[in-house]
């Protein structure tokens, strides 16, 4: 039942034991197996080496492997836990787990904080927020005057930086999200609950057969 192929593919992609991954994440063993199908597809779209390269990530997100995007870069960097320039299967599953509907909100809030803390200083700084607003405007072909951008950033800091020290710390971020829960809506992918339906071919490769 395709065992030779599936074992080979698993070795190449740093395949980790689904039981271990399931025990560490919000996924069931079956869901981890299904994610492997998705991972195989993404990791072979340009370079068939069982690792997700940034170009493959961009291709999946934008249908364009050359599209530069600050936010996609940040997501990629957070998924690439080992910081070796590629996403391995274990990293993929553990990071995607943050987006599972059953994952505690506090994990989602913390992941979003790290995403927006561009320079990893432990704070979201004013300059970082402005840089992200400008990146979003650029991505959306929206043009706003510098005054308007400054006003948006200022207003957000008045709301979020409750200590008034010019930077948002994790505690302020948590309180800000509690008052604005829509900010972490993007941190939940309802689709992840149906992953076994979306990628049913895992059944054919299941280790139960081995």
């Amino acid at each position: 039942m395709g065992c030779y192929y599936s074992k080979r593919a698993r070795q190449e992609s740093g395949y980790e034991d689904p039981t271990t991954l399931a025990s560490e994440t919000s996924f069931t063993v079956n869901e981890v197996e299904a994610l492997f199908e998705l991972f195989k597809k993404l990791s072979s779209s340009i370079i068939d080496d069982g690792l997700i390269h940034k170009e493959e990530f961009q291709l999946a997100l934008f249908r364009n492997s050359n599209k530069k995007n600050l936010f996609a870069d940040r997501v990629f960097d957070l998924f690439d836990v080992k910081r070796n320039g590629v996403i391995e299967f274990g990293e993929f599953v553990r990071s995607l787990s943050v987006f599972h509907p059953n994952t505690p909100e506090i994990d989602k809030i913390s992941f979003a904080f790290r995403l927006y803390d561009l320079r990893q200083t432990g704070f979201i700084e004013r300059e970082e927020l402005k840089e992200m607003v400008l990146a979003l405007l650029n991505e959306s072909d929206l043009v706003l005057s510098d005054d308007v951008v400054e006003t948006i950033v200022d207003k957000t800091f008045v709301d979020a930086d409750s200590k008034g020290d010019g930077k948002i710390d994790p505690e302020e971020w948590k309180e800000f999200v509690a008052r604005n829960p829509s900010l972490i809506k993007i941190m939940t992918l309802p689709y992840l609950k149906d992953i076994t339906l979306a990628f049913p071919s895992f059944v054919l490769n299941s280790e139960v057969e081995d």
Binding site: L42, L61, V75, L136, T151, S182
Partner: peptide, 25 residues
Amino acid sequence: RPVIMNAFELISTSQGLNLSNLFEK
């Protein structure tokens, strides 16, 4: 009265943050 957008609300609309595209077949 003008509504001033929350900067985080604005950036959360980025396509780069919309991971549902990873699941497109």
